[in-house]
């Protein structure tokens, strides 16, 4: 197979399956995101969702899995992906994905459905250190989804609506159940939806800032995972960072941030593909 090769990454998360097709250029180190697809798992079998998603990408790009894909890498809960060539741990994948979006980043903040994880990385995307939020769901994207459902918003609307807030009210940041009760009270009080949503984003952003402080992170900081696409969250994090006299912190977000795990896995897959090739060549020699 000649360079560049095609690799695929599949990230099976708590709510969504995310899949990408990449061209991996071992020689130049210039890798490209060619295609991507997100599928909500809902009540389906995640295995079937993965097959559908991968097949859809292959079909769109007129590729044949057996002949054209050098490596299919899974991550997250993706160990059950039947066609995978190899599996990569999610933190490793998100760290690599973060570096793909922002090669200069020194910290990757993975904000997924279940938790927020701040990761210190080296320029290769290798993990140096990390910290995670506590077990409580009020630090997770799932919490935002629950609240958006309650407020009758599509998840994509949460970011833009948050930007319209003028006087946000912050609910409990300690417990998701308490926060949901707070939100019900805020709705009853007649608070506008933008101010409620911004308040929610701030409550999670407070946790992110605390996490960054405890990890003693360095800037630039790239925000990845599903919540990384929420521009309201990015704004809340930036504002809080300034409030904490950390105005030098530079935050980078990316519209494809939900794909960071899948991208990272696909890139590690390409890396491992060539490593194996080198080993095989050495054995033959």
């Amino acid at each position: 197979m000649v360079t560049p090769i095609y690799t695929m990454g599949v990230d099976v998360g708590g709510s969504y399956v995310k899949a990408v097709l990449m061209s991996y250029d071992h020689d130049s180190g210039e890798h490209k995101l060619l295609d991507k697809q997100t599928e909500k798992i809902r009540k389906r079998n995640p295995k079937d969702v993965v097959v559908e998603t991968v097949d859809a990408i292959l079909l769109r790009n007129k590729l044949n899995f057996d002949n054209d894909i050098a490596y299919l890498a899974s991550t997250g809960e993706g160990e059950m992906v039947e066609k995978k060539t190899g599996h990569f741990y999610s933190m490793t994948s998100h760290a690599r994905g973060g570096i793909f979006f922002a090669p200069e980043a020194k910290t990757v903040v993975d904000m997924g459905a279940l938790y927020v994880r701040a990761i210190k990385v080296d320029p290769r995307g290798k993990v140096i250190d990390y910290k995670m939020t506590g077990q409580c769901a009020s630090g997770s994207g799932q919490f935002i989804e629950n609240i958006s459902r309650y407020l009758g918003l599509a998840i994509e609307e949460v970011g833009p609506i948050s930007l319209k807030a003028d006087n946000p009210e912050v609910p409990s940041g300690i417990c998701a159940v308490l926060a949901e009760t707070d939100v019900i009270n805020l709705v009853s009080k007649g608070l506008s939806t933008p101010n409620i949503v911004k308040g929610i984003n701030i409550s999670i952003a407070q946790r992110v800032i605390k996490l960054l402080g405890s990890l003693r992170t360095e800037s630039p900081i790239v925000l990845v995972g599903g919540m990384g696409m929420n521009e309201g969250m990015t704004q809340a994090i930036e504002e809080l960072s300034v409030e904490k006299n950390k105005e030098d912190n530079k935050f980078i977000s990316h519209p494809d941030s939900i794909y960071s795990g899948a991208i990272g896995a696909a890139l590690w897959g390409g890396f491992r593909y060539y490593k194996l090739k080198e080993k095989q060549a050495a054995v033959v020699a």
Binding site: Y89, M91, K126, V127, Y130
Partner: peptide, 9 residues
């Protein structure tokens, strides 16, 4: 798992 990934790296 996250912790062990960090240890490994």
């Amino acid at each position: 798992e996250s912790y062990f990934q960090m240890l490994e790296q």
